[in-house]
């Protein structure tokens, strides 16, 4: 089946796309929504501009759309982008990285149904520590690009998701109920390399901003 996937740049969207390819589907384009609202309910924003580099590394067309990120209106922008992907690339379905968010999943389901497209959520309800371990097992190089929950702090920015990270986030889950995959927005990630990429992305510069328990790292890629 010809599929497009929603690409935020983070681990979930790319791992979901990877699973689609593993299942024998053809990924024909990636869709990125650039939200101006950093508190968007639908789209995660840190490093999202860098998805162009990721798409290039996958030799995939990137369909990028801007949204003001106003609640519900941003869904219209998403619908337009998916509709464009259907017209331009003749896709039969969409792949998302939704794990727990009924808000995100149900809205994308409605858009896909309206456009007569299949909606695939291969990470749906997946145990989150299992997901982190699967990323390592499958050769995903993922870094943390923002944090937004107590007691997370800027020392986590740029950290690679590895066994040590999983051990630490598990302790934070037990003590502070931090969602280990960050799906509650506790932290965001960016994928520097994965089996879908032809080359690893390299960070040549970074800028850290924020305060208290809300920090983000802007990266410049080679």
């Amino acid at each position: 089946m010809k599929l497009a996937f929603l690409l935020s740049g983070g681990k979930d969207s790319l791992y979901a796309a990877y699973l689609a390819k593993q299942a024998g589907h053809e990924l024909v384009c990636a869709i990125t929504i650039y939200s101006k609202n950093k508190d968007s309910y639908m789209f995660h924003t840190p490093c999202v501009e860098k998805t162009k580099k990721q798409a290039k590394s996958m030799s995939l067309s990137l369909l990028a759309c801007k949204t003001k990120g106003e609640k519900e209106k941003e869904l219209k922008d998403l619908e337009k982008a998916i509709k464009k992907a259907k017209q331009k690339y003749n896709i039969q379905g969409i792949v998302t990285g939704a794990i727990e968010s009924c808000y995100q999943a149900s809205r994308i389901q409605k858009i896909c149904d309206k456009l007569n497209l299949e909606c695939f959520n291969p990470l749906w309800q997946k145990p989150q520590l299992e997901l982190l371990n699967d990323l390592i097992k499958n050769g995903f190089k993922v870094i943390v690009t923002s944090v937004a929950a107590y007691p997370l702090n800027p020392s986590l920015l740029g950290r690679k998701i590895d066994k040590k990270f999983i051990h630490e986030i598990k302790l934070l889950q037990e003590k502070f109920k931090i969602n280990p995959a960050g799906e509650g927005g506790e932290f965001e990630t960016f994928v520097l390399n994965c089996p879908l990429f032809s080359n690893s992305l390299k960070i040549i510069d970074k800028k850290i901003t924020g305060k208290n328990n809300s920090w983000k790292m802007e990266v410049k890629l080679k």
């Binding site: 089946m1 699973l19 689609a20 299942a23 589907h25 299949e118 695939f120 959520n121 291969p122 990470l123 749906w124 309800q125 997946k126």
Partner: peptide, 12 residues
């Protein structure tokens, strides 16, 4: 019908 949906509806 489509086996890729298993991850969503059966694996869960």
């Amino acid at each position: 019908k489509e086996s890729f949906h298993e991850l969503e509806f059966v694996r869960s």
